[in-house]
Design a protein around this nucleic acid. Structure first.
Lengths: 164, 164
DNA sequence: CTTCGATCGTCCGTGTCCGAACGATAGCGG
DNA sequence: CCGCTATCGTTCGGACACGGACGATCGAAG
């Protein structure tokens, strides 16, 4: 939803299709801008930081979570990263093939699989994360310094509001 | 990034990996919560509104954009929806197969393809969009009424900040 | 010790999602 | 009117992304 039409134009167009219904355009604007922003920021970070290292977004998230919490169980990686176990399984196979992470069955509970970074993986993250954080700085530069905390809090509220 | 660790725990863990570097944790929190919120909201809307009608997120966005602006060129649909022309091409084929949209070559410029809704597609959207907007209301209910405008504006700023 | 329900990670099928390459078309300069 | 260059939508290959089904494993109840 990152088009060229203004909000007012969109409202007028929608209104003409559903003239008889009362709609919440403010809610529509918040949700629509949420996805527009998430898409734009993700594309920016992928282009500027991830693509030069031949990493996808999801692969980077997996590396990041593992880097911070290793050794970590796969279910926790999926939970922290916000995607399904099925998705993680494929990404882990890719990263394992590139020699960035290792899988290892837990001795205590042989249903679990522990994920770790290889030395190469750690070296990559030590170089990559500062670059990533630099670009995060660029992204939030448009929000006044004093409002960043409340912005993060409002976004957190959105997540909590829709949790089942 | 929707895990169980607190922000403070994460900061401490990251700091211990990069003790020698100055990082912007506030920027990190904003970006991370942005994706957490976008994912959570999308999942919520998919579950509550889209799945009962057997529609994916992207398919709904395509239908919505087309519904508002038809007839519309495919490049504009992709631009408004925030995905690539390649992605759109596949989704359009699916929607065409289900009899919800039509493709038509432009007479003026035969490189262009115009997209329209079928009567069935229009009927579906007329029923679906009010349901969607109802859930958008639920999502933003956690943000105080007076702050929704500025929240939408802040998100819009994020998109603009990373536009090349 | 044995059954049984719960939970783990993986696999499968289907549907996005993108960059790159492609053929078709348009509009320009000569 | 004829190449050149730009732009269009599609296709292709590879990597996500998810729900559901699966075998392996655990813990508890009997």
């Amino acid at each position: 939803m990152a088009g060229q039409h203004t909000l007012a134009e969109t409202e007028r167009a929608v209104q003409s299709r559903l003239a008889d219904l009362t709609l919440d355009f403010e809610a529509m604007a918040v949700v629509s801008n949420l996805f527009r922003a998430a898409n734009a920021v993700r594309n920016h970070l992928e282009r500027t930081v991830l693509q030069p290292h031949d990493l996808t977004w999801t692969a980077f998230v997996v590396l990041w979570v593992t880097w911070i919490w290793e050794p970590i169980e796969t279910r926790q990686v999926a939970e922290e990263g916000g995607f399904s176990k099925a998705t993680l399984s494929g990404v882990l196979t890719t990263l394992e093939g590139r020699g960035l992470v290792t899988r290892e069955r837990s001795k205590q509970d042989r249903r679990l699989v522990l994920v770790r970074l290889t030395p190469n993986g750690r070296r990559l993250m030590k170089k990559l994360f500062p670059e990533f954080n630099d670009q995060e700085r660029v992204v939030v530069a448009s929000i006044p310094r004093g409002e960043r905390g409340s912005a993060a809090q409002a976004l957190r509220q959105l997540s909590i509001a829709v949790q089942t």
